[in-house]
Design a protein around this nucleic acid. Structure first.
Length: 267
DNA sequence: ATGGTCGCCGAGCGA
């Protein structure tokens, strides 16, 4: 079994204590982080390595930044989403993890990507077409990767609520870049390629959220959005044993505004 | 209540 989680940490420096507490408690094998908001050299590598993780970082000052943590051997494959000439945002890292088989014979190759998809708001600004173009680049990479027929997890902050069931107030959010039909359509196109949403595959209950705004008591009112996703290749979906959203870190002191989403794959 | 909260960094932007 391999447990793979994704978490938008909203600054690894501001939330390192919460991150270490959660890593010790949840013991994920692989963690995909977004919005680390630090350059590579400022990433708190030693504290995380002390917990037994290998670390791969694509950092950036102040904004964005993604990372992969892995208890198993980790090789970085890509440090940017292809096709982005002139795009300097640190929003994509892809790696390969060699997971020891439970049988004790050899390793299973698991490919993962940590994705921080552009927010796209305001939807009437040039940020929205940037988001949509980024999603089209992601679809191209996702299609390419399917041909490899690997156990693959594309996880991260997609900044897309796939359906009205993933938003506490669908009418209020109708025009937002996270809910606009252009965003949802491009997210659906990823599923149509053959990817499986690890949460929706196993859960039908309402109020499955991964993000609650800091403002207006959204957390206390459970007014959230499901925008962090784990998309599984068919080879990964065949191995899906469990998935969930761990709400505990969102209730901690000085939390990130997102909470981790995770899945377990048989290996 | 024409606001509300964070993190960046040291003013206003991004979320």
């Amino acid at each position: 079994m391999v447990r793979i989680a994704s978490w938008n940490i909203n600054s690894i420096k501001a939330h390192i204590a919460n991150a270490l507490t959660w890593l010790r408690a949840a013991k994920p094998d692989v963690v995909l982080l977004q919005e680390i908001k630090v350059t590579d050299d400022a990433f708190p590598r030693l504290e995380i390595e002390d917990l037994g993780y290998n670390v791969a970082v694509v950092g950036q000052k102040t904004y964005n930044g993604v990372a992969i943590l892995s208890k198993h051997p980790l090789t970085t494959e890509l440090k940017a989403l292809p096709g982005g000439e002139g795009d300097s945002h640190a929003r994509y890292i892809e790696g390969i993890v060699e997971v020891p088989r439970s049988s004790g014979t050899g390793h299973e190759t698991v490919r993962v990507a940590s994705i921080y998809l552009p927010n796209g708001n305001p939807a009437n600004s040039d940020k929205f077409p940037y988001k949509l173009a980024w999603m089209e680049r992601l679809r191209a990479r996702a299609q390419e990767l399917l041909a490899l027929e690997e156990v693959l997890v594309l996880g991260g902050d997609y900044n897309v609520c796939p359906t009205d069931a993933d938003v506490y107030d669908p009418e209020g959010w109708r025009g937002d870049a996270l809910c606009r039909p252009e965003s949802r359509g491009r997210f659906r196109s990823l599923l149509h390629l053959g990817y499986t949403d690890a949460i929706r595959a196993l859960h039908a209950e309402p109020r499955l959220y991964t993000f609650w705004d800091y403002q207006a008591g959204c957390w206390q009112r459970d007014e959230g959005l499901r925008i962090d996703h784990l998309l599984l290749s068919p080879q990964a979906a065949d191995r899906l044993q469990a998935s969930g959203i761990d709400r505990e870190p969102r209730g901690a002191d000085k939390p990130s505004d997102h909470t981790p989403v995770w899945c377990e794959l048989a290996v």
